[in-house]
């Protein structure tokens, strides 16, 4: 009873000022609201439209010109994709290379990231900027000279060759983002751990690494997606022996009906979307994102 009266008393008080305030600006507000809605709808159409088209296309049997909707529906194209050995192998290859790339890249880049964040050494800035070299030139030019080198080293059509291409594409994320994350760990937190009796190695694994983990995770996800998406270099170095999902897309677009390409691109998108959703939950909603004030 008491609660109910309190609530009913509070409700009008909260709502009362709103209309009074809104009245003079109503027309302006309405216009802004309309504009926002239109823009949002356009944006939604721009983003979701192609996805809807893709989804419809993946289940369409025939879809002829004047019709807005497919003539009939089928799951035939999914059977084609799952039945095709080459496509299955491509999925397997992609799922093999992407995690391996993240692992190798992490092993190479994370120590470098820590060094960039914590130590002052000659040429520090030069090397940090130099990491952009791999991304500074047109990719195709880089891959052509890489191919020349790979022929000489017998790395063409090899797992190692493809791995090198993939890792090269992740070096910038895997160094810069974790480096910023390491640098953001306050030194006093590391000192407090030393003071508590932890060795330097223990301090790194108990304090520095867990605190830098969100940044490292972001870098790992970006690397995973970069590797999953890498087509040009993989095609040049790996085809035709090692086909991954994006390189297989090329032949799909050329050799199969568009419906198969639609099915395949949906499959290609699944890991990316899943990872981004997982990352969103872990990084944005995680306890590490809670504001913690440290001078």
């Amino acid at each position: 009873m008491a609660q109910a009266t309190l609530e009913s008393a509070a409700a009008p008080r909260e709502s009362a000022p709103a209309p009074a305030e809104a009245k003079p600006r109503r027309s302006g507000k309405a216009a802004t609201g309309l504009l926002t809605t239109v823009l949002a709808l356009l944006l939604a159409l721009f983003i979701i439209g192609p996805l809807v088209w893709l989804g419809v296309r993946a289940f369409a049997d025939t879809w002829t010109y004047p019709h807005l909707w497919p003539d009939s529906w089928t799951t035939h194209w999914w059977q084609v994709v799952f039945g095709d050995k080459a496509l299955g192998v491509a999925v397997q290859n992609s799922l093999f290379f992407a995690p391996l790339t993240v692992l190798v890249s992490a092993v190479i880049c994370l120590p470098a990231a820590y060094a960039f964040a914590r130590f002052e050494f000659p040429g520090r800035r030069f090397f940090l900027i130099g990491l952009f070299a791999a991304n500074a030139f047109p990719k195709m030019g880089l891959f052509v000279s890489l191919a020349a080198l790979f022929y000489a080293l017998n790395l063409m059509n090899s797992i190692l060759g493809i791995l090198i291409v993939h890792v090269l594409g992740t070096i910038v994320f895997m160094t810069w983002i974790p480096s910023a994350a390491f640098a953001a760990v306050p030194r006093s937190l590391e000192e407090a751990a030393r003071d508590a009796g932890a060795s330097k190695l223990r301090v790194f694994f108990s304090v520095t690494l867990p605190m830098a983990l969100p940044g490292i995770l972001v870098a790992a996800i970006m690397s995973f997606l970069a590797s999953f998406d890498e087509a040009q270099g993989t095609y040049l170095v790996g085809a035709p022996d090692y086909m991954t999902m994006p390189t297989q897309m090329y032949s799909l677009v050329l050799n199969y009906p568009t419906q198969v390409a639609a099915v395949f691109s949906i499959l290609l998108a699944i890991p990316s979307v899943a990872l981004l959703l997982a990352a969103h939950k872990h990084i944005i909603g995680g306890q590490l994102a809670e504001g913690f004030q440290i001078k």
């Binding site: 006093s188 000192e191 306890q287 590490l288 440290i294």
Partner: peptide, 10 residues
């Protein structure tokens, strides 16, 4: 005891 307390947030 550190000035900013230096507690481990995780």
């Amino acid at each position: 005891v550190f000035q900013n307390y230096a507690l481990w947030p995780h």
